[in-house]
Design a binder for these strands. Sequence first.
DNA 1: GCATCAATGTTCGCTTTGCGAACGCTGTCA
DNA 2: TGACAGCGTTCGCAAAGCGAACATTGATGC
Lengths: 258, 258
Amino acid sequence: MTAADQDRNISSSFAKGLAVLAVFDAETPSMTLAEIARRSGQDRATARRGALTLVQAGYLRQDGRMLSLTPRVLALAGGFLQANQFGRRVQPVLNRHARQMETEVTLAMLDQGRVLLLAQSTVEHGHITYGFTAGSHIPLAHTSLGRMLLAGLPEGQSAGVLAETDLPRHTETSLTDTAVILERVVQAREQGYCLTDSEFESGITGYAVPVSRPGRTPIVAGCSAPRGQQPEADAERLLRGLQLCAAELRQAEAVDHL
Amino acid sequence: MTAADQDRNISSSFAKGLAVLAVFDAETPSMTLAEIARRSGQDRATARRGALTLVQAGYLRQDGRMLSLTPRVLALAGGFLQANQFGRRVQPVLNRHARQMETEVTLAMLDQGRVLLLAQSTVEHGHITYGFTAGSHIPLAHTSLGRMLLAGLPEGQSAGVLAETDLPRHTETSLTDTAVILERVVQAREQGYCLTDSEFESGITGYAVPVSRPGRTPIVAGCSAPRGQQPEADAERLLRGLQLCAAELRQAEAVDHL
DNA sequence: GCATCAATGTTCGCTTTGCGAACGCTGTCA
DNA sequence: TGACAGCGTTCGCAAAGCGAACATTGATGC
């Protein structure tokens, strides 16, 4: 019993159970007990109790020895989305701008050293992405959304957060040097937008602009498109669109209290 | 210690904590400890431990004495959405059909005596709804989605599920007699679609068709629109669109294992 | 302004829960 | 065929958390 974690106000069983649920946030569709235990860093018996409790509560389904999430977890997110009126204040704005820009527009924030997608426009003509949705995590260091988020942090913090994330090479042109990436972050902060090219998906350019007011928890909007014939013209058009979208979200105070 | 609930495989602390988290699924944006305790039917001290644990885990935020969900809960849903490839296999289909039909198209299933929205297309010109999103709950008895879901249950079960839900009158024309509602459910099962008018929102007609194959967990698709000049023509057009959408989802096996 | 009361947040002793070493089972390799 | 590695499950004992009791806050009456 170390001094610090001896907090009688925190329920450790509950915390461990939550870790079991959170383990499914990866793109692993279903897992065995042992796998859950390994990924959540818990004893197999502990993970088992957590998983069985989740099954009983209806958040997990058990098929033989495989466990997978049930749709009920959506209800947890639904609480958040309704409380913040995403359906009325955010989604329509994203959709409208996406329509005009002819790409998908994504709203995102920082979460545990990764980019958490908060909302995504739903348009027909968007280029085929990986199929990310609200609630998906994408890398911080090699996406324009991620770098723009880092740029939104108080001056000193960006380096710290970046240092704690690992830097897998997604493509051949992914930057690997932390210092170089930080340079791009600083550049993004100064110019008020961020561009990346082929660092996450080959041939795809990413665009991002800040949405939250300076000093607040960083929220950004972004989009991506295949690199076309006139990169500069595309960039200007898409960034202008994103800026308009961001301004409208700010004015609606849609993201002020996240 | 009663005999039944003495299951050493279930972690009661965890189950109680989950109940705290689930309490936020209502449209209550933020609550005090006492309110959480009341709504989750727990002792205040118990609710407090659960809430503080959720705060530490980053799922709840504490502003003074008010507690509210953080965006991190989206990540839990994200795991489900990515595991089932909603972004690639469901959302594009809904969007395309919604565009052609010029309405929102919603995918839904049963959850705890209510309709759980699984996914929703959004088009620009759709009529303004309550702002529901994926993860939202809507009533079972007075929506076409809900009645179509009841129709998808094995013959005897519909009545049982319906009996356990309460029937608030949303509008003046909401049906209140369980027997009459059940009649409509049977009718929906026989004709393969469901229509409701002004029972949930005044002046709005709801349309729904089944998506899942018979015998499976019921999944339905639906849409709604203001009652127009030619109700029959509208109904025919929208139902045809929904049927096409449902057929495509079935063919893509997008919802077979929910 | 002070006393009263109701409702909320917090503490701590006693009991219960759930931790994890140990077990048995199943499939795999030499 | 025997050894082994990995899995799910059990059970005695330590510690985690339940809830009665205690503070604390704030509204209401006089």
